[in-house]
Design a protein around this nucleic acid. Structure first.
Length: 837
RNA sequence: GCGAGAGUGGCGGAACUGGCAGACGCGCCAGACUUAGGAUCUGGUGGGCAACCAUGGGGGUUCAAGUCCCCCCUCUCGCACCA
């Protein structure tokens, strides 16, 4: 075994006069790796702390956003470790995904090779040079068989429980990525990855029944006080619960039922027509034998061919066509025409709506356009509504009218009454609808987890038996970038035998959405080498849940919702006891330069490698933590980086000057109470500790350390007499320990120079002595009528009366009083006096 | 439109429960040491000669308001035909 730089050398260590980040950082990074300083195991005797940063996609290089993300996580981890926690801080790779496949098509390199080379580079040349306190033995790589086999295993379990299922439906299709996208992956009608216009395709696809957990996902939002309200709001909106009533209308003639969903049962008497989605299966029934059949068919075809951006555009003109059919409103037996409308969505509610133009703006516009009748059924108390003259729908409250048995009922309780009536009469039932749709996970791409399903002509859909897992992603495939995915073209993969009957069969050639990988990786970290199950239940029981999760806000409804869903599914499979994966969530802001997000096209990218080689990791970390609080955007500033670098030099220089002298001196204790530097030291310990504990305000914590260093420069400016050396040692020791989470390499080197043989990483966080904080003097601000007129330095512990007297005697105060008697004097102990004239 | 967050020096940002607005850093100015300084150290630095004026704007509460209340403006983010 390679013997590290330890023992003999340590005792003789002499500090270099000048701070040289390269040598210091290389040395400590080697030492941490050789000693496995950050390796952890379950230890019931100590409180655990699980700190996790969202693992990266191995694109090839880390960017400043990563530097910031991991710096934040590393401060938390190192701080908690010094506070005595058993800290799990792992790192891994979200390594399936399209870019690897695109590289294969473009450069002829296999996705596997491309990905693994990127990982090696990012891990060994980039992340390790940042000095992050990871337990690298727990590294998880999702594109490896040892990981993705458990995706398949979980899929099979979900299939057994009906959570994974296949259905034919209209799905989002990205023509550029040649694959299907989940709803969460379409932003304003565009592909989240490549911004291509998303179209619709009717395909058979695998889904995860996330809607079965909609209520719980919504309810548990209230059990996540450690999450930003913003993210919870986004999730609640995304889930989008709405309560209402389904009502069966009867088709005139055939007597078939057309069911609608409404949240406004109080307006049921105002229905003047109905609208159904162009995709609705009843369209054909409605138009059968009607003269407008062809026109309706053409209309539906045209709308269905529109892409997602056009169809969901709010400004899209409302358009429709009369189907020729009529339906009967069960409440008043009125016959109303049935239209097909471009704004009615097939996958929400029942795909058919009742239209009440008087009280719904969309219906109103539609009715005006096609000259359909409007009937007021909620009367505005302030201003009588008249259907003939209304210029927009009335959506406010009021009394029900034209609603026979309910006339005069206020509409809000009316909703409930009508709903009850509908149920009683058997016209329909109360239901809940969700905006959330089931998660479509099939992807027509190669670089992902194969879905473990076989299609047999005789037996139908057959899951791959557990014993046959993993279904290995074959490597001998062709990347043409054209036609179907390489898997679908690979005969040796596709053609197989049925596990049930042994007859010829074919494999599912779609792969899973890569968000499946990241939906449970935090559980895998608990026991990354486990071979019997996705993870060891006991290990997960010890480490979970994640105490602090850190990552970008862009995953607010993607990854973070999927991960919550998976955790609940895994719980219900009996694999884990817990409802939620992440206790506390920190969403860090973006790193921007010149007011814009760093991007190649803007040419404002700062390369972390360059910063680290020029200034060192400690400076890169320190700046990214100092320039802004973590949750805000951070404006990158090259001169600010110089400032951070200069600060570390100042720290180094002051320690260098005195490390020889204070090496053998005992730190000061209580007897030093009253010494200003001693007091400042303890104030700084208090401030830094509180700033870290309170919402991770690292920027102010670092500012406090800078103040302490400034004070040290004042203190040492005229030389330090021997009797002051203990106080100096206390200050320097505290400074080094407090700076350690932020700039760990410098801290270790300086700590060692004081003669310490245990590394900073294994040393306790300093605690402050409340007694050291008290001062014998207080500065009191004196105001006259709320304006500052002077300051008094008074002995601590005076009574209000004494302070008042001192204030009134003050020269400036007397001037402003000009002989008048004050009306009132307010004394705030230890802070100020306000004399009111 | 709905929801959330934010507006403080030349810039990034401080100010936790109302109590000295501008901590800390950058930049800038001056000085010291220097052959030199884009190194380092020291001092200064919101505006105005001053009284005073200053936390997006306007009201209010209070002895006291960046902080609390009301109205308005601007910006950022999310959602947006969800019946």
């Amino acid at each position: 075994m390679h013997f590290p730089i330890c023992a003999l050398q340590c005792l003789e260590v002499r500090l270099e006069e000048r701070y040289n980040p390269k040598t210091v950082e290389d040395r400590w990074q080697q030492q941490w790796a050789a000693n496995k300083t950050f390796k952890v195991t379950e230890d019931a005797s100590r409180p655990k702390y699980y700190c996790l940063e969202m693992f990266p996609y191995p694109s090839g290089r880390i960017h400043m956003g990563h530097v910031r993300n991991y710096s934040i996580g590393d401060v938390v981890s190192r701080y908690k470790r010094m506070r005595g926690f058993n800290v799990l801080h792992p790192m891994g790779w979200d390594s399936f995904g399209l870019p690897a496949e695109n590289a294969a098509i473009k450069h002829g390199i296999h996705p596997s090779q491309w990905t693994l080379e990127n990982i090696a580079f990012m891990r060994d040349k980039q992340l390790k040079s940042m000095g992050l306190s990871y337990d690298w033995d727990r590294e998880v790589t999702t594109c490896l068989e040892e990981y993705y086999r458990w995706n398949q295993w979980l899929f099979l379990k979900m299939y057994e429980k009906g959570i994974a299922y296949k259905k034919r439906s209209y799905v989002n299709w990205c023509p550029s990525c040649s694959t299907v996208l989940a709803n969460e992956q379409v932003e304003e009608g565009l592909c989240w990855r490549c911004s291509s216009v998303v179209t619709f395709r009717e395909l058979e696809q695998w889904f995860f029944k996330i809607t079965a957990y909609a209520q719980e996902l919504l309810d548990h939002c209230d059990k996540l006080p450690g999450w930003p309200e913003r993210v919870l709001t986004m999730q609640r909106n995304w889930i989008g619960k709405s309560t209402g009533v389904e009502v069966d209308f009867t088709l005139d003639g055939s007597g078939e039922k057309l069911t609608i969903f409404t949240t406004r049962p109080d307006t049921l008497y105002g229905v003047t027509f109905m609208s159904i989605a162009p995709e609705h299966p009843m369209v054909e029934t409605l138009i059968k034998g009607k003269q407008q059949a062809d026109a309706v068919r053409a209309f539906c075809q045209r709308i269905m061919g529109e892409d997602k951006a056009v169809r969901t555009d709010e400004n899209q003109e409302k358009e429709g066509i009369f189907t020729g059919a009529f339906a009967v409103n069960p409440l008043n037996n009125e016959k109303v025409p049935v239209w097909a409308g471009n704004f009615v969505l097939m996958d929400y509610g029942t795909g058919a709506i009742m239209s009440v133009p008087a009280h719904d703006q969309r219906d109103f516009e539609f009715a005006k356009k096609y000259q359909l009748p409007i009937r007021v059924v909620i009367q505005n108390a302030d201003q009588d509504l008249d259907a003939a003259t209304m210029r927009q729908a009335y959506v406010g409250e009021g009394a029900m009218v034209n609603s026979r048995p309910f006339d005069g009922t206020p509409n809000v309780p009316g909703k409930e009454k009508v709903a009850e009536y509908v149920e009683q009469k058997g016209y329909g039932k109360r239901t809940v609808n969700w905006r959330l749709r089931d998660w479509g996970i099939s992807r027509q791409r190669y670089w992902g987890t194969p879905i473990p399903i076989i299609y047999c002509e005789r037996c139908g859909t057959v899951p791959v038996p557990e014993l046959d897992l993993p279904v290995i992603l074959p490597t001998n495939v062709e990347f043409t970038g054209k036609g179907r995915s390489p898997l679908a073209e690979s005969a040796s993969f596709r053609d197989t035998t049925c596990p049930k009957c042994g007859g010829s069969a074919r494999r599912e050639t779609d792969t899973m959405d890569t968000f499946v990988d990241s939906s449970w990786y935090f559980l895998r970290y608990c026991s990354p080498k486990h071979t019997e199950a996705p993870f060891d239940k006991k290990a997960a029981g010890y480490w979970m849940s994640v105490d602090q999760y850190i990552g970008g806000i862009e995953h607010a409804v993607l990854h973070l919702l999927y991960a919550r869903f998976f955790t609940k599914v895994i719980r219900d499979l009996g694999l884990f006891d817990g409802d939620e994966p992440f206790q506390n969530l920190l969403t860090q802001g973006m790193v921007i330069k010149d007011g814009a997000k760093m991007s190649k096209s803007k040419g404002n990218v700062v390369d972390p490698d360059f910063i680290i080689s020029k200034y060192g990791a400690d400076t890169a970390r320190l700046f990214s933590l100092f320039a802004a609080p973590p949750e805000r955007d951070l404006e990158w500033n090259d001169q600010g980086v110089d400032g951070a670098y200069r600060f570390l030099h100042r720290v180094w220089t002051v320690v260098y000057k005195y490390h020889g002298k204070i090496r053998t001196v005992q730190p000061a204790g209580r007897e030093a109470t009253g010494d200003p530097l001693y007091r400042k030291t303890h104030l700084t310990i208090k401030k830094v500790t509180e700033d870290i504990e309170r919402e991770f305000h690292f920027n102010t914590a670092i500012a406090a350390l800078m103040e302490l260093v400034n004070e040290l420069y004042d203190f040492t400016a005229q030389g330090v007499p021997d009797d002051k050396l203990p106080v100096l040692r206390t200050a320097i020791e505290a400074l080094i320990l407090l700076i350690a989470p932020f700039a760990p390499h410098v801290a270790e080197e300086l700590w060692e120079s004081l003669g310490n043989t245990t590394g900073v990483a294994g040393t306790d966080w300093p605690s402050f002595d409340a007694g050291a904080l008290v001062s014998t003097e207080v500065t009191v601000v004196v105001q006259v009528n709320g304006k500052v007129r002077g300051k008094l330095t008074l002995p601590a512990g005076l009574t209000d009366k004494e302070i008042e007297a001192a204030a009134l005697a003050e020269g400036k105060v007397r001037e402003h009083l000009a002989g008048k008697t004050p009306k009132k004097v307010i004394v705030v102990q230890g802070k100020l006096v306000n004399v009111v004239v």
